[in-house]
Write a protein that binds this DNA or RNA. Structure first.
Lengths: 116, 116
DNA sequence: CGCTTATATTGACAATCGTCAATGCAATAG
DNA sequence: CTATTGCATTGACGATTGTCAATATAAGCG
């Protein structure tokens, strides 16, 4: 996945007309596929799920490395993919980086799948 | 994606308890990731969308090759991925193979994302 | 200033993926 | 039977991915 080309989830809203039964255009299909690819990894799904179940729905990298059983650079990499795709927000406070769920990102992509 | 290990979508229903705010287990994350990976490709999203917008929601390979601009073997490959993941059903009638949407597959995965 | 701690980046590697040309396999037509 | 048509499979190829070790950056502490 090329990180530099990821679009925020909000751009997905115009990937396809919501009600019509027309086939998806190539452009919309690529946008949606990019958003799904960012989600389609067990480590990233667990990261989202751990963040979601934390108090205040935020967590720092140190909270995430051990439960996943992956190295710290690998966790940082997955977090970057999720931020680039618009699923997570990143806030740096002091030495720590706190990740939190982006408000409607998951609902948006989930809704688009339902309309497919 | 290893085609032999794909599970039917129905198996996703026990990938994680629906309401709880517990982090996903590794096993459930892998199942859901496999289902999402099958979806996370522009050609496959367009295939689903074309099938969905057809009369009777079914189409043969000959209907699908030209609108995608991909070779026939490539289209057959993508269709196989979608069938293995449980998104499409395949019925052979005479020389033709007709693909149709599996009834609740997309809703299931879409619902799981919403609960994440 | 140097030392420690938390996170990010780089570079490498094996594994997987998407694609096509060539070929195989069934089912129908003649 | 042979020829044709629709689809599947195989094998190859470059491209992308997930992972880690090593290194870099940056913030706080002494």
């Amino acid at each position: 996945m090329s990180l530099t080309e990821l679009l925020p989830i909000t751009d997905l809203n115009d990937c396809c007309a919501p009600i019509t039964r027309e086939p998806m255009k190539a452009d919309g299909a690529e946008k949606l596929a990019r958003s799904l690819k960012a989600l389609a990894d067990p480590a990233r799904l667990r990261l989202l799920s751990i963040v979601a179940s934390h108090e205040d729905a935020e967590a720092c990298v140190c909270d995430l490395t051990e439960p996943l059983g992956l190295s710290q650079p690998t966790v940082s990499h997955h977090l970057k993919v999720l931020v680039s795709a618009g699923y997570l927000n990143r806030e740096k406070r002091g030495t720590w980086a706190y990740y939190s769920l982006a408000p409607h990102a998951l609902e948006t992509v989930s809704g688009l799948l339902g309309d497919l």
